[in-house]
């Protein structure tokens, strides 16, 4: 019976870890919105929150890692699961990194681009939420993973489209200094890369699913 308790414990930890990834997306979305609207207080609060979430995520990941190795759980999929958790953690890091980028660069984002930036943020968060659903399905209902992965690929393509449109618009705004244009472009690329990274995780997950069903 001990082994069932152990399984239940690690299940909860993984669920909790994935909750942190989703939460980081939501905090990032609210934080970015606060930044664009110039609400510094809210932005600072969200920055603090995302740092805490990131710490919690790191702790959980380490604890799961240690648990899986010391208790030799799921020996055949252990390395895949650990890689998956690390990849998911990197998404969380990137959300935090994007908010810190805004804080450090203190970039003045042109009002014309606000709508596209907000849309891009929404799509990126959707992409990450879709990959979280896929990962949860990987643990609980492997046949449902494919549906969630389809969503990841859909949102990632949307993110690419918005990002390209946004970068073109930034560089066509000739009254802006080149450096200003480049910094805004970099931010758009940073956000798009989160969706790209989620797509990479989806590709790996696809392989893990094939491996598990063999």
């Amino acid at each position: 019976m001990k082994i069932f308790k152990r399984a239940l414990g690690v299940e909860k930890q993984i669920d909790n870890f994935l909750n942190q990834v989703v939460r980081s997306g939501l905090i990032f979305s609210q934080g970015a919105e606060a930044y664009l609207t110039g609400n510094k207080t809210d932005f600072k609060r969200k920055l603090k929150e995302i740092v805490e979430v990131e710490h919690t995520g790191d702790d959980l990941r380490r604890s799961i890692q240690q648990y899986l190795y010391t208790k030799t759980l799921i020996p055949e999929s252990r390395s895949d699961v650990l890689q998956l958790l690390e990849d998911m953690d990197s998404l969380l890091d990137r959300f935090k990194g994007a908010l810190w980028r805004m804080e450090i660069e203190n970039l003045d984002i042109e009002e014309d681009f606000h709508e596209d930036f907000l849309l891009l943020i929404k799509v990126v968060v959707e992409t990450v939420e879709a990959i979280v659903h896929a990962v949860r399905a990987f643990f609980k209902n492997i046949s449902a993973v494919a549906d969630h992965l389809d969503k990841v690929y859909y949102w990632e393509t949307e993110s690419d489209k918005i990002s390209t449109r946004l970068q073109s618009a930034i560089f066509r705004k000739e009254e802006l200094r080149l450096s200003h244009r480049m910094l805004q472009r970099e931010l758009a690329r940073h956000l798009d890369k989160i969706a790209d990274r989620a797509e990479d995780v989806a590709d790996s997950l696809n392989i893990y699913v094939i491996k598990r069903s063999v």
């Binding site: 239940l8 999929s77 046949s143």
Partner: peptide, 17 residues
Amino acid sequence: IRRFGIHMFKLDAITRW
């Protein structure tokens, strides 16, 4: 396994038993 959607870790424990 598909019908009951058994979690990977629970499945691991069941498989060991």
